Simulated assay, not measured.
Amino acid sequence: MGVVETNVRRDCLAATAVRSFPSQWSFSSNVDSCGGLARIMVAWNPLVLQVSVVYASPQLVLAQVESLEDHRVFCISVIYGFNNISARRGLWIDLRSASLLVGTGAWLQLSDYNVVRKMAERMEGFHNDAAVEFNDCLHDLELEDMPAKGFWYPWTSKRGGLGDNKSKLDRAMVHAKWLTDLPGSEAWFLHPGVSDQCKILITVLPAVSVRRPFKFFSFWMSHGMFKELLVTSWTAHVHCHSHLLKLSLKLKRLKPVLRQLNKAHYSNISLQVEEARSKLHQIHEDYFSHPHDPILCEAEKMALSQFMVLSLAEEGFKK
């Protein structure tokens, strides 16, 4: 959990954490970088995550996180940018420094940058120079918006009616590495309630493995081992009195046998076809130069047969 705009004095941090975070959670802040007044606090469940704050500044807290369940390691930054464009330039320096610590690892930024990227993200008061500096930093760090749902404008002035001003000041930004390692991630911008900012909830879903349905390829029957494998599997005894169930069990038992046949002889089929084509081409060149060579004649016959078998197998895969 990351909280910004806390403005908590050093001597009040522990008491504030007890009142604000779940029992037994650990916490940290950027109080040492802000003259004794924390602007950002982070908290976590130590039974689920091992967290180490590796960099802190007045506008940024960077933490390395390890999941104790699957030992996956990633980095998270909680950011609260200054309102002033000049003061905010320190954030762009901080982020570039932080990127050196993150390296090529997965990195998530949960951020109130206090600046927008383009005019469409703010109803009024757009500052082009500030947007240019912001975009330059994101480009240098190769960061992009995480797939998001919920409120498009996470910040509102809370004036109400036509006088209400809205902006996209808050974002969840990630490296491409994050989306590769955690492809099910989404950012949810939740209802702000009484606050002028939306809460950001990050969901990290495990990749769902979809079992591919079994598909029978007719070219398997042309393989020399097919009949033997089929007879061996099919004639093996099945302890069952129901004929229908016996048929089902035999089919289920045959599937891994055929899958193994396919893996052993037809994996990377396109590469095998290209290799067979090259081999046939080379034999043709040699054979045309020595048309009466019986060894080349037999080699051409075998290479052509192999190429035809593999080509038909590739065609069967692509249907």
Results as ranks from 00 to 15, higher is better:
W220Y: 10
F214E: 13
Q260G: 11
W234N: 08
L230N: 04
S222F: 07
F216N: 03
K263C: 06
E228C: 09
L247R: 12
V210H: 13
K255L: 01
K246N: 07
V257E: 08
V238M: 15
F214L: 14
H237K: 07
L229V: 03
F216A: 04
G193L: 04
F219T: 12
L261A: 14
E186S: 06
W234K: 10
C198D: 02
R211P: 00
S242T: 02
N262Q: 10
M221E: 07
R259G: 13
G224E: 15
F226R: 06
I202Q: 03
K199R: 09
E228Y: 06
R259P: 02
L249A: 12
T235L: 10
L251N: 11
F226T: 06
R253N: 15
K199C: 04
W220G: 05
E228I: 03
H223T: 06
I202Y: 06
K246S: 14
M225F: 04
L245A: 05
A236G: 08
S218E: 11
S248Q: 15
V204A: 10
L205F: 01
G193K: 02
A207V: 06
C198A: 02
L245D: 03
K246D: 03
H239P: 00
K252M: 09
W188K: 05
V208Q: 14
H223V: 08
L244A: 08
K255T: 06
L230T: 05
N262A: 11
S209V: 11
T232A: 08
P206R: 04
G224Y: 12
L230Y: 14
F214K: 14
H223M: 09
L249P: 05
L201C: 10
S233P: 01
E228R: 12
A236H: 07
K252D: 15
N262R: 01
S233G: 12
L244D: 11
M225K: 09
F216S: 06
S248N: 11
A264P: 00
V194R: 08
M221V: 06
M225Y: 01
L249D: 07
P206I: 02
A187I: 07
F217D: 03
F189H: 08
N262V: 00
L245V: 14
M221D: 00
A207F: 02
K250L: 15
V208M: 08
K227V: 11
T232M: 00
F217G: 02
H223G: 07
V238D: 07
E186V: 10
W188H: 13
P206D: 08
V231H: 04
E186L: 10
L190V: 02
L247H: 09
L249K: 15
R212H: 12
I202A: 01
L229W: 01
V204R: 02
L230G: 02
R212N: 11
C240P: 04
D196K: 04
L254H: 03
S218V: 12
L247Y: 10
W234M: 11
K250E: 14
Q197S: 15
L258C: 04
F226M: 02
R253Q: 14
V238Y: 13
H237A: 12
K246H: 03
L251G: 10
